[in-house]
């Protein structure tokens, strides 16, 4: 299938069920809310090495936050409930609580609780104050700039992680420009995040390695500098590949995000230098969620 001179491979992206939670970080100004959130979501690009995948979902206005201050919403994904709880608690304690004027709230409801203020309260050394508003409990922990307000629990919900597509372009710069355009559109889709730096991955991986200790290694089929020595997936004109990975709350959200990204690139056309769009999968054996590129575009 060729759309606006860009080839769309008849393949699919393979994604996995993950555990997810949404958090809301607020502060006196949007700048400090974002600073706290950036700290929280740092080193959270892939579950392979970081334990979780996390990014800012969107910026929230004063009217959208529980304490009527500017804020941001964060989505965090992990493979297990235990790991998700651990990552949230560690990051909340070290990155949000330490950030000036910040407060932390749960951004979703669910049946499975994740300790938040319920554990962080002990930092208050007995001077912490518990407050219950309707069915939610908040903790007021005395800190050096006043009080750190933190909700008692965050809540776990099911999510989908690893939706992706590959941008195959003639040059590195063109691949980068196209990916930036796609990321801009994909970031507008609610309930999704792009966990990698700037939303883009250059080191796409495959499962396994010749080195036994490694779980994943470079996806050599898409590495242009070794295309003469391996079974390559690249044509002669394709000399740079970038991947965009999406995590979302539902399969539908991920589909919308992939569609927005791919359509944005197709719109750029031949001049963009993008030759084709493909997707990463493991033969359909590992992940239950399959995103067929051609179906997405229908």
């Amino acid at each position: 299938m060729i759309s606006n001179s860009i080839k769309i491979f008849d393949t699919f992206a393979e994604a996995f069920p993950m555990k997810c939670s949404r958090l809301i970080v607020t502060a006196e100004t949007e700048k400090w809310a974002r600073t706290a959130a950036n700290s929280f979501t740092g080193f959270a690009t892939s579950v392979i090495g970081c334990g979780c995948e996390s990014a800012i979902e969107k910026t929230l206005s004063k009217n959208e936050t529980p304490d009527q201050r500017p804020g941001v919403s964060i989505l965090i994904f992990s493979m297990s409930s235990k790991e998700l709880s651990k990552q949230i608690l560690n990051r909340a304690g070290q990155c949000i609580m330490t950030s000036p004027t910040s407060a932390l709230f749960s951004g979703n409801d669910g049946d499975i609780k994740i300790k938040l203020g319920n554990s962080l309260r002990y930092f208050g050394d007995g001077f912490q104050i518990s407050k219950k508003v309707d069915k939610k409990r908040f903790w007021r922990i005395p800190v050096m700039d006043g009080e750190f307000i933190c909700e008692d629990y965050a809540y776990q919900v099911d999510g989908v992680g690893g939706g992706n597509f590959l941008i195959l372009a003639d040059t590195k710069l063109n691949a980068l420009k196209a990916s930036e355009v796609a990321v801009r559109e994909m970031q507008k889709i609610p309930n999704t995040i792009l966990p990698f730096p700037g939303g883009v991955v250059r080191s796409g991986s495959k499962v396994g390695s010749k080195y036994k200790s490694l779980l994943a290694s470079t996806n050599f089929e898409y590495c242009p500098t070794i295309k003469g020595v391996v079974k390559t997936a690249l044509s002669k004109a394709e000399n740079s590949v970038l991947e965009i990975v999406v995590d979302g709350l539902t399969k539908y959200d991920v589909t919308l995000s992939l569609k927005a990204g791919i359509k944005a690139i197709i719109k750029l056309g031949k001049k963009s230098g993008v030759k084709s769009i493909s997707a990463g999968n493991y033969g359909g054996k590992l992940g239950p969620f399959h995103f067929h590129l051609r179906n997405i575009l229908k």
């Binding site: 529980p66 304490d67 009527q68 201050r69 004027t101 407050k131 007021r140 006043g146 009080e147 307000i149």
Partner: peptide, 11 residues
Amino acid sequence: IHELNYYKIFS
């Protein structure tokens, strides 16, 4: 004298 953010929930 303090500005207490918690009470902004009740604002």
